[in-house]
Amino acid sequence: MSTALIGPLLLLAILLAAIGAARRVKMWRQGKPDPNAVPFFKGIAAILPRYLHDLHDVVARDKKFANTHVATAGGFVASVLAMLVVYVFGGNSSFTYGLLAVTFSVMSIGAYQVKKRRDNPPANLSKGVWHRLPYSLLAFSLSGLCIALIQLLGIDNVPIVLTVLLLGGVLLGLAELIFGMTWGGPMKHAFAGALHLGFHRRQGRFGGGRSTGLKPIDLNENTLGVEKPTDFHWNQLLGFDACVQCGRCEKVCPAFAAGQPLNPKKLIQDMVVGMAGGDT
Score class of each variant (00 low, 15 high):
residue 6 I to F: 04
residue 10 L to D: 00
residue 10 L to K: 04
residue 11 L to K: 12
residue 15 L to S: 06
residue 20 G to K: 05
residue 21 A to F: 07
residue 23 R to W: 15
residue 23 R to H: 14
residue 24 R to H: 09
residue 26 K to M: 08
residue 33 P to C: 04
residue 34 D to S: 13
residue 35 P to K: 12
residue 37 A to W: 05
residue 41 F to P: 11
residue 43 G to N: 02
residue 52 L to D: 02
residue 53 H to R: 09
residue 55 L to T: 10
residue 57 D to H: 10
residue 60 A to L: 08
residue 64 K to V: 11
residue 69 H to K: 06
residue 70 V to T: 13
residue 72 T to S: 09
residue 73 A to R: 02
residue 73 A to H: 03
residue 77 V to I: 00
residue 78 A to W: 02
residue 78 A to K: 01
residue 78 A to D: 00
residue 78 A to I: 08
residue 78 A to G: 08
residue 79 S to G: 11
residue 80 V to A: 10
residue 84 L to K: 02
residue 86 V to S: 12
residue 91 G to E: 08
residue 91 G to Y: 11
residue 94 S to I: 02
residue 100 L to Y: 07
residue 112 Y to Q: 12
residue 112 Y to F: 14
residue 113 Q to A: 14
residue 113 Q to T: 10
residue 114 V to M: 09
residue 117 R to P: 07
residue 117 R to V: 00
residue 118 R to T: 07
residue 121 P to N: 02
residue 124 N to M: 08
residue 124 N to Q: 13
residue 129 V to L: 14
residue 130 W to Y: 14
residue 131 H to E: 12
residue 133 L to G: 00
residue 133 L to Y: 00
residue 133 L to Q: 00
residue 134 P to T: 03
residue 142 L to S: 10
residue 144 G to E: 04
residue 145 L to K: 14
residue 147 I to W: 14
residue 151 Q to N: 15
residue 157 N to A: 14
residue 158 V to N: 12
residue 160 I to H: 15
residue 165 L to H: 10
residue 171 L to P: 01
residue 175 A to K: 08
residue 176 E to M: 11
residue 177 L to P: 01
residue 179 F to S: 09
residue 181 M to Y: 02
residue 186 P to K: 03
residue 186 P to G: 01
residue 187 M to F: 01
residue 187 M to T: 06
residue 189 H to L: 02
residue 191 F to I: 03
residue 192 A to W: 03
residue 194 A to V: 04
residue 195 L to C: 10
residue 195 L to D: 02
residue 197 L to K: 00
residue 200 H to A: 11
residue 202 R to T: 11
residue 203 Q to L: 07
residue 205 R to L: 15
residue 210 R to T: 14
residue 210 R to H: 14
residue 211 S to W: 00
residue 212 T to F: 00
residue 214 L to T: 03
residue 215 K to S: 02
residue 217 I to V: 13
residue 217 I to W: 05
residue 218 D to W: 04
residue 218 D to P: 05
residue 219 L to R: 13
residue 220 N to T: 14
residue 221 E to N: 07
residue 224 L to P: 06
residue 226 V to A: 13
residue 227 E to M: 15
residue 227 E to Y: 11
residue 229 P to Q: 06
residue 234 W to K: 06
residue 235 N to Q: 09
residue 238 L to P: 12
residue 240 F to P: 07
residue 241 D to I: 03
residue 245 Q to I: 04
residue 250 E to A: 15
residue 252 V to G: 01
residue 252 V to K: 10
residue 254 P to C: 06
residue 255 A to H: 12
residue 257 A to C: 01
residue 260 Q to H: 11
residue 267 L to E: 12
residue 276 A to W: 14
residue 278 G to P: 05
residue 279 D to C: 11
